[in-house]
Design a protein around this nucleic acid. Structure first.
Lengths: 340, 340
DNA sequence: TAATAGAATGTAAAGCTTTACATTTAGCGC
DNA sequence: GCGCTAAATGTAAAGCTTTACATTCTATTA
């Protein structure tokens, strides 16, 4: 298409050197007022825009932040990206987005791509953080902030949710309400986040001196159908329970539907709580209880932390665990005498 | 961090010129086998990676595709981005993502940013396509594909859903089932997509010779609460209707909850259909009827089209309207005699 | 053996900016 | 009017690659 005008053409038209034009454009040095005016006029007339590639080459920075995400399904990650974008936008950075689909090999490829593209920093959202990831990160010439995983042990900066803490807190609320036989619908057994939540659940029981029954613990895949199935499995065991904690809203909704289909009254007979607060929580007529935490803030904080690291010479360890709120709604009530 | 090695250092070590190294690295010219081997060895030893910035400067292309999206809430857009990513990934392009938050001014800013960043093409997802957008696009030196809006009139290439068609089709299904008093819960009045769906609804009625009653048409904001409110408004009018078409799943779920709360039996008394098929459709015990269309495909097709445009010299108009499927599930049944 | 085609390799320009350093200009005090 | 300082401007290198064109081989054919 139409040929771009470059700095030397502007300089020629203005009868000055390119250095002076550069100084005017970037306001990076003393220029006589009359010269400045003249150059600005030419810039405007010609619509001159510097070639960012050349500039980046000279400056050795791209004002680009890379982001590696396993996938985008689920509303959480999108919100996080919005949060990231908000920060980058107001700091003149742009976002290079990639989906890794979770495999280690693919993640390695994406780290290399971002390195090649010379991004100035990387936000890395992974399902589970491995030793190999640490190696990848250490090889990079730019800072990396991990999102959604607690990488304290690895010494890698991160922003994450307090999975164990809020799972424990929510379970404790149920215990406070008199529940002692509580079932847990967990996530995939190899998911770090799901296991952290499960741990919180177990800790709450243990702290209260309640024995943890394996019969009350199941694992699913986060989906509604899976919640339904796992709930059914537990129901079949015919052991009495008065509350269910689900690792996320999908499983909670599945459980809710399953209970209702089996004529178990919620919340009169069984309370249901999802460790989540997505749009699904609002979908059922019976308002689902859950834990609220902001993915938007997650992204926001991660981007903030990254920019900070990018500005400092040394990438020192830093961490941020986000706050949460437990919302008890219609799906939870105090334990009443259980009618068998 | 550690200094990168550049092509001339590799050349020096190998005792050849940089041109030869470039030829080996890019496999872009004849090189004697022994020389090639030697250079490849040095490349491996030194871990040489070309400076992409310099390369892009020389090649005048960035292998970058920009994407402007109003926002990322809702699962649709994320899926679309995944689809885009899938195509770009396998074609060695990367994605520069920006959220415009919908304002025209912001969109203009983002177009400029992408132009500055010298992306090779742009995918533009907007809520409503205006004359100004066309101007912005025509000024750009790279092709643009619009996503989610039918821009046939403007002559701008696009990939979109057949809003009017599937809304009409779904409504016709209801009519075939004997429904004649059908309510419509629409989206925001300034949303092009929402209005296209409304038009399809109206066309179906008109084609069947059914008068369109304003009392049966409401507008909301896509959310569950809004669907609930609008449904209530219509219920209050005390006119008999036997089916409801909602502009999306959120409104449909809201309507469903509202009807049930008012002791209206679904589907026995009123059928409910959402012009959507998100995760929400699976959340209720009563399986919601709807229209299925794939956002992932939307992104996929948009990216494909863009790449094609990028490869051809002239950017000729092209369009793609995606297929859809109407799924009648539990929430819809044939009209039976209406008990008053 | 010389000519010649074709392969292999090298040279240098083009792509465009930033910036350290060099040079020139202007202004001020004496 | 001279000298000095500070401001204004210019020069050229550095950042690194690709590639058109030039040159130098190598091998084949006459």
């Amino acid at each position: 298409m139409r040929k771009d005008i470059n700095i030397s053409e502007v300089a020629k038209k203005a009868g000055v050197s390119i250095a002076t034009v550069s100084r005017v454009f970037n306001n990076s040095g003393p220029v006589k007022e009359s010269t400045r005016k003249a150059i600005q006029k030419i810039i405007e007339e010609t619509g001159y825009l510097p070639n960012v590639l050349a500039r980046e080459l000279a400056e050795k920075r791209t004002n680009l932040v890379g982001m590696i995400v396993h996938n985008l399904s689920g509303e959480g990650m999108s919100r996080a990206i919005e949060g990231v974008n908000r920060v980058l936008d107001s700091n003149s950075y742009s976002l290079l987005m990639t989906c890794s689909n979770g495999s280690l090999e693919s993640e390695r490829k994406h780290f290399e791509l971002l390195r090649l593209k010379r991004v100035d920093g990387i936000i890395f959202a992974t399902r589970s953080f491995k030793e190999e990831h640490k190696d990848m990160i250490e090889k990079l010439p730019v800072p990396v902030v991990v999102m959604l995983q607690n990488t304290e042990n690895a010494g890698v900066p991160f922003v994450a949710f307090a999975n164990t803490a809020f799972a424990k807190g929510a379970t404790q609320k149920l215990i406070e309400l008199g529940h002692r036989e509580v079932a847990f619908l967990g996530g995939p057994e190899d998911s770090v986040n799901a296991n952290e939540r499960k741990r919180g659940f177990i800790e709450a029981l243990e702290d209260a001196g309640i024995a943890v029954e394996e019969d009350f613990i199941c694992h699913g895949n986060y989906h509604i159908e899976s919640g339904y199935e796992q709930m059914k499995t537990i129901l079949k065991r015919k052991k009495i329970f008065t509350a269910v904690v689900a690792v996320n809203d999908g499983m909670a909704i599945g459980a809710l539907n399953c209970l209702q289909d089996h004529d178990v009254k919620v919340p009169e007979e069984v309370s249901v709580l999802g460790l989540d607060d997505t749009v699904l929580a609002k979908a059922s007529r019976l308002k689902l209880s859950g834990v609220h935490y902001s993915y938007n803030d997650l992204g926001f904080e991660a981007a903030q932390m990254l920019l900070k690291q990018m500005q400092s010479e040394v990438y020192d360890f830093e961490k941020k665990v986000l706050p949460y709120e437990i919302h008890l709604r219609e799906s939870v009530q105090a334990r009443t005498h259980y009618k068998n």
